[in-house]
């Protein structure tokens, strides 16, 4: 067993302090509008994987990872800014930037990687936003975690976040949450395979119903989650 494997567990663990437990990615607004059933939740998460966080976030993560491996800070910042610009919903955009900035600062506290430190500095100086997939891609490159595993970590953590939010919103129970995570396995691996090796200019997303729900969340008076 390698230390890289342990680093992977560490960064993918919900104990890792990146603040993602505060996000429902629109699920809170949707569950206020209608009763969401367990099977509908799974369809929703799949749609995220196939049309939003897969082609946009996972693709950007891969591009940032490659830039990090090439020692190209400008490439990393380009990926960071491209994803920031692509996120249509302000709450979601800001939440991603905040959690990524937290992630990169935390990893910078225990990694000596010069490029990671440079990216953290760019985030602190507001030359980069700290988008979560970019931060994770750079951190994984610094810790020797392979790119496909980095993509899987990101998408799996996203699904855990959705499952956790659904649990707290009363949409599913703890066993149903684990069942869903298990059943999403093939969709996660497919989304990684399809997106993580693509160049940045092939990044896309198209999930207007999700965008609208996430915008609805911005208008809620009473809310438990930041997205």
């Amino acid at each position: 067993m390698s230390t890289e494997f342990l680093s992977m567990l560490q960064l993918a663990d919900s104990f890792f302090p990146a603040g993602t437990y505060t996000m429902s990615n629109g699920l809170e607004a949707l569950s206020k509008r209608k009763k969401v059933k367990a099977d509908e939740l799974q369809v929703l998460v799949r749609t995220h994987l196939e049309r939003q966080v897969g082609p946009a976030d996972c693709c950007t993560l891969g591009a940032a990872y490659e830039s990090a491996k090439a020692g190209d800070i400008e490439g990393i910042i380009r990926a960071d800014q491209a994803l920031y610009a692509a996120k249509l919903v302000e709450e979601v955009r800001n939440a991603s930037a905040r959690s990524g900035a937290n992630l990169v600062r935390c990893v910078a506290a225990f990694s000596n990687d010069a490029l990671l430190a440079e990216y953290a500095k760019a985030v602190n100086e507001k030359r980069a936003t700290g988008m979560h997939p970019v931060a994770l891609g750079v951190a994984c490159a610094a810790l020797g975690i392979p790119k496909h595993e980095a993509g899987a970590m990101f998408l799996y953590s996203f699904c855990v976040g959705m499952a956790g939010a659904a649990l707290r919103l009363g949409v599913i129970d703890h066993v149903a949450a684990q069942k869903m995570l298990h059943e999403l396995g093939p969709a996660i691996t497919a989304a990684v395979k399809e997106n993580v090796d693509k160049p940045l200019d092939l990044m896309w997303q198209f999930a207007p119903a999700i965008d609208i729900t996430q915008m609805e969340h911005e208008q809620l008076d009473s809310k438990m989650f930041i997205t």
Binding site: F15, P17, A18, G19, Y21, T22, M23, S24, R98, S99, A101, N102, C106, G164, A165, R168, K223, M224, F225, I226
Partner: peptide, 21 residues
């Protein structure tokens, strides 16, 4: 105002990152 995903103690102790931000 800051929403904390229904986890008030996590937001100020285990993972205070959003508050620190």
């Amino acid at each position: 105002g800051l929403a904390t995903g229904g986890c008030p103690h996590t937001a100020v102790r285990e993972d205070p990152s959003m508050n620190i931000a």
